[in-house]
Amino acid sequence: MAVRTVRDRAPALAAPRRTGLSDRTRRGLAAWGFALPFLALFLTFTAGPVLASLLMSFTDLRSSDLRDPLAVDFVGLDNYARLLQDEVFLQAAANTLYFVSAGVPLTILCALGVAVLLDKGVTRLRAFFRLGFYLPVVTSIVAVAVVWRFLLQPETGPVNQLLRLAGIDGPHWLTDPVWAMPALIVMAAWRNMGYLMVVFLAGLQAIPRELYEAAQVDGAGAWARFRRITLPMLRPTLLFGAVITGIGYLQFFEEPLVMTRGGPLNTTMSVSYAIYDQFGFGNYDYASAMSYALFVAIIVLTFVQFRLLRPRT
């Protein structure tokens, strides 16, 4: 009651402001107000399940316990210890690292190149090109798999035929333990480029035109303008692109699923694929442990990216 009285009287005391709260407090309240819907949904639908699955990773819960999930034993860190001796998981971790370190830069470079060209390099048919480069994102994975398998066919595929013109004997891409992964990396870059392009196109809009015009007056060439204006101004969006692609690629899964089933000899087996397998086997405990190992890897990668790309002050 007392509190209420004070608050009721506050506006009068703090005239001409409408409320008696300081600007800082009001802004803080507004900010938490803005956060409220997200927080409420997050606490309800994410926090609980995350906690539950984290706990799972410390138990021996299998799919056969689903009906009665409380009747399981705590096994401490056993599931995590098992990871270190699981040769499939270790191989998958190495493969995923390979995929991320080659795939993320490749995809970002392609997407950025296309976005800049479509934003400034061309004027005619721009909308048409934009739509065209977005098509891989929306193409059904079934069609993608069929066409890419055909492209990479050892004898008759266009890729190897082109290589033959250059005097190179192309490998059996998808069944060769050395070349299967590079093939999937290129394919993933192709598939995800359009997604990032959309984000980068938006980011390019936040750069004031005047900066370019001023630079042009100063006689800066196209490359200089790109390096000194576009890149620094696009930093927040680039960071976003790098983080999202990194997170996505650490969970690399669909390409090996449709193209190689993780083979040959598990050389395209990814951590997410291994999790999917364990989940399918009904080993919810172990699948959770793998997921949280991946979770930690994602946090580390994101932290590094924030360090590398944070705004220079």
Binding site: A40, T44, L51, A52, P69, L70, A71
Partner: peptide, 24 residues
């Protein structure tokens, strides 16, 4: 909304209680 949160918390707590363990 409060009810929803309560359920989520209860669910997490229930899972945490799994000290019951497997029956011999």
């Amino acid at each position: 909304m409060k009810r929803l949160t309560t359920v989520a918390v209860a669910l997490a707590a229930l899972t945490a209680l799994s000290g019951c363990g497997r029956e011999a």
